[in-house]
């Protein structure tokens, strides 16, 4: 068992400004398997929090404070060394790759060998009920299928935490509940700390963790 003071994701005095204006200021600790929900209207800067934590903040914004992951300060690390699993509103499957290509691209380099990597991707597909979809063009998938592939892609990369940017807002009602349940279930079982940004109270309720209102 990890030391509870260092486990999970810690935001220490995180502050984001645009020019003179302060967009947000947060001090929180998200334990593994827990979700921190940030709510606010559009334009409130809630997505910039995810960008800051993920390491891809647009240079026009200035961010301050520290982000610790498992006790390690990651706020100076480039995005690719932070291992943030990100889900956006859109599934954003790479359109030039096959469904399987998207997954294989996500598998860590430590897994070597074409066959091994492919088998891992096929297994992940089977796991989300998309057995045999490896060679498919992502654009031919339904919305729900795309969302599931996007989730599988994130998880295959073995992230340290998840950043969710209104990932369910574009799905229709029925599908939304289904995907939402799937995401939180997987996050819990993988014991990932999660930051969720949304303006949908139902998301916050489903996530079940702390809620911060900004803006």
């Amino acid at each position: 068992m990890q030391d509870p003071s260092t486990a999970g994701l810690r935001l220490e005095g995180v502050r984001i400004v645009l020019g003179e204006r302060e967009l947000l200021s947060i001090d929180r600790h998200v334990m593994p398997g827990e979700t921190l929900t940030v709510m606010g209207p559009s334009g409130s800067g809630k997505s910039t929090l995810l960008a800051f934590v993920g390491g891809f903040l647009d240079p026009v914004f200035k961010g301050g404070g520290r982000v610790l992951c498992g006790g390690r300060d990651i706020s100076r690390l480039p995005a690719q060394e932070r291992h943030a699993g990100i889900l956006f509103q859109d599934p954003l499957l790479f359109p030039h790759m096959s469904v399987g290509g998207n997954l294989v691209f996500a598998i860590p380099e430590a897994v070597t060998g074409r066959t091994a990597r492919r088998e891992l991707a096929e297994a992940a597909l089977a796991d989300i009920g998309l057995d045999g979809f490896f060679e498919r063009d992502p654009d031919t998938l339904s919305g729900g299928q795309k969302a599931r592939v996007a989730l599988a892609r994130v998880l295959l990369a073995e992230p340290n935490f998840l950043l969710l940017d209104e990932p369910f807002s574009k799905l229709d009602m029925q599908l939304r509940d289904q995907i939402r349940a799937l995401v939180f279930e997987r996050a819990k079982s993988s014991r990932l700390p999660v930051i969720l940004v949304t303006h949908d109270a139902a998301d916050a309720a489903a996530a079940g963790g702390d809620v911060i209102e900004i803006g």
Binding site: F56, Q80, E81, A157
Partner: peptide
């Protein structure tokens, strides 16, 4: 859409890899 690059970076891909692969 730079979110593709954010995703790739989150997947642990270097800037160079993201540039050439995505």
């Amino acid at each position: 859409d730079t979110r593709y690059e954010a995703i790739a970076a989150g997947l642990g891909k270097s800037r160079r890899a993201t540039f050439f692969a995505i």
